[in-house]
């Protein structure tokens, strides 16, 4: 009996050893398989981001010596009226481009979800086409559509109604409305299809029950549709907010490289400081400010969506 149990013990020991190496093998493979991402991210993601914080406190023209200047870069941009103008422009263009757009997208989704409508797949494709068009192409075509002359198609249409042409390219609000329209056009269909997917996941029984209780259509919309769509609405608003803060291509193409004050956005200001003025310190200070601004807006978003949740609970 003794040798047999000894063999058993040996066997067990052997299998433990084997299992250990198996486990180690798995670990090594695991680290190896995730390493390409982390290596690339370290070089082209994490390091540049951290280095931006360092550069924000240096004076640097891109090739000479860096000199530590403390908060001077921040002081410089904070007393620059154009910096504040760029924040103002970004927020206004963002609001003009997203608030009406999301409302329209929701209405569109509700209509597309209606049993009355046929040819749904045709409309889905039609509304999605703008999103496949590149931002550069969109900006170029809208630059022509919002041409300042009377021959511009928007001004010509205004003329049909007896309205005088608008200086889309040079007036404070003209520029913003034109850029907001580009954002509206490119994203309204995309967001309505996301809303539509959400609408289709709401159980029909909820509406049937509400109908039996005598709830009107608008009541059903307000007390069933909106609360059930809450997670998707929050997601869409969140991405739209972050996206708006990063607007760059549209104003650059619409107003040209002259960085007009009516349309300069935060990222455009950053770009101008870096690649037009060779002021990489203030450009980095702008990047850090943008980062903090995005965090602030995200926190506001989270707080607001929490409140939305609470009021929903009280009602529901």
């Amino acid at each position: 009996m003794v040798p047999q149990s000894k063999a058993k013990a040996l066997n067990m020991k052997y299998s433990i050893a084997k299992r250990l190496t198996e486990k180690q093998k798995t670990s090594i493979a695991g680290y190896l398989f995730i390493s390409p991402f982390f290596l690339l991210f370290a070089v082209f993601g994490a390091f540049p981001m951290i280095f931006s914080f360092y550069l924000a406190f240096q004076k640097w023209n891109g090739f000479g010596e860096m000199t530590f200047v403390g908060f001077q870069n921040f002081n410089f941009i904070f007393i620059d009226p154009v910096f504040w103008k760029s924040i103002y422009n970004t927020v206004i263009i963002g609001l003009l481009g997203t608030v009406p757009q999301l409302i329209a997208a929701l209405i569109l989704a509700v209509i597309l979800n209606s049993v009355l409508v046929k040819m749904k797949s045709f409309f889905r494709v039609a509304y999605f086409v703008p999103n496949v068009t590149s931002i550069v192409a969109v900006a170029i075509v809208f630059t022509v559509i919002f041409n300042e002359h009377q021959s511009g198609i928007v001004n010509a249409t205004l003329g049909l109604f007896g309205l005088s042409p608008v200086n889309w390219q040079t007036s404070e609000w003209g520029v913003k409305i034109a850029i907001a329209t580009m954002i509206f056009w490119r994203w309204v269909g995309y967001n309505s299809i996301i809303f539509l997917a959400g609408l289709q996941s709401i159980p029909k029984e909820l509406y049937e029950a509400a109908e039996m209780d005598g709830a009107k259509k608008w009541q059903q919309f307000l007390f069933i549709t909106v609360p059930m769509l809450k997670p998707i609405i929050i997601f869409v608003v969140f991405t739209a907010t972050i996206g708006s803060l990063q607007i760059f291509a549209e104003p650059l193409i619409f107003s040209g490289s002259g960085f007009r004050e009516e349309s300069i956005t935060i990222v455009l200001y950053l770009w101008r400081e870096a690649f037009s003025n060779n002021a990489f310190g203030t450009a980095s200070a702008t990047a850090v400010s943008l980062f903090l601004l995005i965090i602030a807006f995200s926190v506001i978003n989270v707080l607001m969506s929490n409140r939305l949740g609470k009021t929903g609970n009280i009602r529901g």
Partner: peptide, 8 residues
């Protein structure tokens, strides 16, 4: 946001 690291 990707713009944070743009310059470095």
């Amino acid at each position: 946001p990707p713009q944070l690291g743009l310059i470095p």
